[in-house]
Amino acid sequence: MVLNSIERLLEKYDNGETSLREEAQLKAYFAQEDVPPHLESYKVMFQYFDATKQEQFTKDVPLKPKKYQLYRWISVAAVAVLMVSVYLLTDTKQGLESLSHDELMAYNQTVEALNLVSTKFNKGASSLNALSLVSQNLEKGVESMNYVGEFSETTNKIFNLSN
């Protein structure tokens, strides 16, 4: 390319008026080895721009899917469910204070009825004592029957002797 046109382009370039295509022309011109000494500073600049553009990002970009947030909320929900269930379980074990009037009535009636049953049961059990008394007397009777047996034995002996 003629030096004249390059110099004209450079003037436009210095004023920030060149298009990308004209800048590409300049870049191509300064990529060659020999340039006039008074344009040396341009050459350094354009070579620097060119070299800098080669630089690359070599590290990895750590991109994680956003799922871990969901897992975090699942654990929070699990803890909440646990707490609620514990609360509900302890609630059913509460005492008489939480019962309503009707429920209290029913409870008291049940207790009364059960008491009645248990007293009757005890009475029945005490009347069984009479039976054990009877069996005692029966045993005494059996014992005295043994005397009768003894007596009959001796009478038999007497009969045998007299025969």
């Binding site: 370039y13 210095d14 004023n15 920030g16 008026e17 040396e40 500073s41 341009y42 350094v44 600049m45």
Partner: peptide, 19 residues
């Protein structure tokens, strides 16, 4: 464009200076 022109001129000026 103005900022660009200023920057380009500054670079070249300082470059010729150091050279």
């Amino acid at each position: 464009r103005v900022a660009l022109s200023r920057a380009r001129k500054t670079i070249r000026e300082k470059l010729t200076h150091t050279h």
